[in-house]
Design a protein around this nucleic acid. Structure first.
Length: 528
RNA sequence: GGCUCCGUCGCCAAGUGGCUAAGGCAAUGGAUUGCAAAUCCAUCAUGCGUCGGUUCAAAUCCGACCGGAGCCUCCA
């Protein structure tokens, strides 16, 4: 089964064929760094990071670029508001963005080009467009002439006339066509500015992606990604500029991820209500107007504009482990809108507990630490299942095949996630059947270890289940010491079949939110 | 007004022409356990918004309708 990807340009799933055999160039539109990253900013990076990991697994040599747009109108406005320089604000917000990527285990990006480092490249591109008659200077600005591009509108499937029909046209607009967009903007005093053949100014919004993409990845790239909201005008304009400039196809495949949405689809911030009434934990109580300080404000509404004076780092990750958030993002298809509600993320956290439990058990039985376990990174070097009990090997192999099948079908991570749960079940079953808790053979332990390695091979592709959950046991010596003592006394009571005492201890601890579990190898406790 | 997209079990969610419609959460029964917890096994949509149509065959294609979302405003 070949890899197939949905291409926005053709609105169909196509077989994946790269420009250069064996190599993939990927460009994802990154943030304009004028405010802290919100949870929605994490969606694209997580998805395309996963795509890259999978392409590497499939044997491709992948170069993945995300740009940082550090010059822009909004940045100028925001910096002025805060009394900071544009650069200082951009640096601060870029650092915040990187922090969050790290938390989300997004670690496969090869290059983060900054717009301000490529002004020269943008100017050359603009000059070339002017020379070719696709752009024209006007009072210190330079505009792209959409009518010179026969294909204009092909990505978002709209025509120039159609676009103008529904929009009010500014009367004093001197552009040749109202749909023409700025490649270069003359600057006002106090704004960041660069010299240019058309006068001092700064680049327009879309040109940085075209210029940096061509510079770093070449004029024709394989995958261009971004949020669905960027399809128009951003990607449409990028496409027009790039192709008019180079005369070559800009990107083979356009991949657009769905946008994150609030609770129950009520749209704007403040209109969102939880279906079941009270939203637990984050106190979106009285007054449904999501304030910016409210953690759930990050979860409300469109996420883009209004909310988000606070970084996702503190607004979301303080309450929900980034691991769970990443797992949640990948449990649905990347093109679907994502309903980021507190209930949903809580359900994901709950569903992960079974994995953590399995890893704990496995470590106790085999000494293998799942989180540091090394696993193969490519299909050709995949975990070998030779010598394992036949049924066990067959079950694991089937799930790996299904996982690959799902990912091959337009990176259907939701289907792939189901395989992880199946493998969890298979491993737990194996532990039960082979009575590993009560001893078991070395061969069975090796088999279990191999099963874990296969699971790790797959969870690595999704970038999930990489770190142990926050400690649930005791982290102070006194508590540990006391619990050892208490459980020791209880063990004596159980040996003497003194059930009332044993149960009293367990129940009393339960009231203190400490859960005691018995097993053949002794009692364990966790903070509930 | 124009352009997209979506509606699958109580909830989340795969599947987009043909195997018994994945999986998770919740629930129920059983195994296990001194009792629990955890784990395993079993059950849980003759049905995929509604009504028509195409087809040997449709959740999957077409039409209409109902309901929801996004874009056309420099939001990832």
């Amino acid at each position: 089964m070949p890899l197939r990807v949905y291409n926005t340009l053709t609105r169909t799933k196509e077989d994946f064929q790269t420009v250069e055999p064996g190599k993939v160039s990927m460009y994802l539109c990154g943030p304009t760094v004028y405010k802290p990253a919100h949870i929605g900013h994490m969606v694209g990076p997580v998805i395309f990071d996963t795509i890259k990991k999978y392409l590497v697994y499939a044997g491709y040599d992948v170069t993945f670029v995300i740009n940082i747009t550090d010059v822009d109108d909004k940045l100028i406005v925001k910096a002025a508001e805060k009394g900071m320089t544009v650069k200082a604000l951009a640096d601060q917000m870029t650092a915040d963005y990187f922090d969050n990527l790290k938390l989300m285990a997004v670690d496969s990006i090869d290059c983060f080009p900054y717009a301000t480092d490529h002004i020269g490249d943008m100017q050359s591109m603009i000059q070339k467009l002017i020379d070719k008659g696709h752009a024209y200077p006007l009072n210190g600005d330079v505009y792209f002439a959409v009518e010179t591009d026969d294909d204009y509108g092909k990505l978002s499937n709209r025509s120039i006339s159609q676009m103008l029909a529904g929009t009010r046209v500014e009367a004093n607009d001197t552009k040749r066509n109202p749909a023409d967009f700025a490649l270069w903007k003359s600057s006002k005093p106090g704004e960041p500015t660069w010299d240019s053949p058309w006068g001092p100014g700064r680049p327009g919004w879309h040109i940085e992606c075209s210029a940096m993409s061509a510079k770093i990845l070449g004029e024709s790239i394989d995958i261009h990604g971004g949020g669905l909201d960027l399809m128009f005008p951003h990607h449409e304009n990028e496409l027009a500029q790039s192709e008019c400039c180079s005369g070559k196809p800009f990107a083979r495949y356009w991949l657009h991820n769905g946008l994150m949405q609030s609770g129950k689809g009520t749209g704007k911030v403040g209109g969102a209500h939880s279906k079941h009434g009270d939203a637990p934990a984050t106190g979106a109580t009285a007054g449904s107007s999501g304030s910016a300080e409210d953690p759930s404000a990050q979860i409300a509404g469109k996420l883009a504009g209004s909310a988000g004076a606070e970084s996702v780092k503190t607004a979301v990750f303080a309450h929900h482990p980034p691991e769970a958030v990443r797992f949640f993002l990948l449990s649905t298809h990347y093109r679907s809108p994502i309903d980021f509600s507190i209930e949903n993320i809580a359900a994901t956290e709950k569903s992960l507990e079974g994995f953590y439990r399995l890893f704990e058990t496995a470590e106790r039985l085999t000494g293998v630490n799942y989180y540091t376990l090394e696993a193969p990174k490519t299909k050709t070097t995949a975990t070998k299942l030779d010598g394992l009990p036949a049924e066990f090997a067959a079950a694991l192999s089937e799930q790996r095949a299904k996982f690959i099948e799902a990912m091959d079908d337009d990176f259907s991570s939701g289907g792939a996630v189901a395989c992880l749960f199946e493998i969890r079940r298979i491993l737990n079953s194996f532990i039960n059947d082979k009575k590993l808790e009560a001893g078991g053979t070395d061969a069975d332990k090796v088999a279990l270890k191999t099963g874990l390695t296969l699971l790790k091979e797959l969870t690595n592709l999704l970038g999930v289940l990489r770190t142990a959950p926050a400690k649930k046991g005791g982290d102070d010596e006194l508590a540990n010491g006391l619990m050892d003592l208490i459980l020791d006394i209880r063990a004596d009571a159980r040996t003497n079949k003194n059930w009332p005492v044993a149960d009293k201890i367990r129940n009393a601890l339960k009231a203190l939110n400490i859960v005691v579990e018995d097993s053949p190898s002794g009692a364990r406790w966790t903070r509930g």
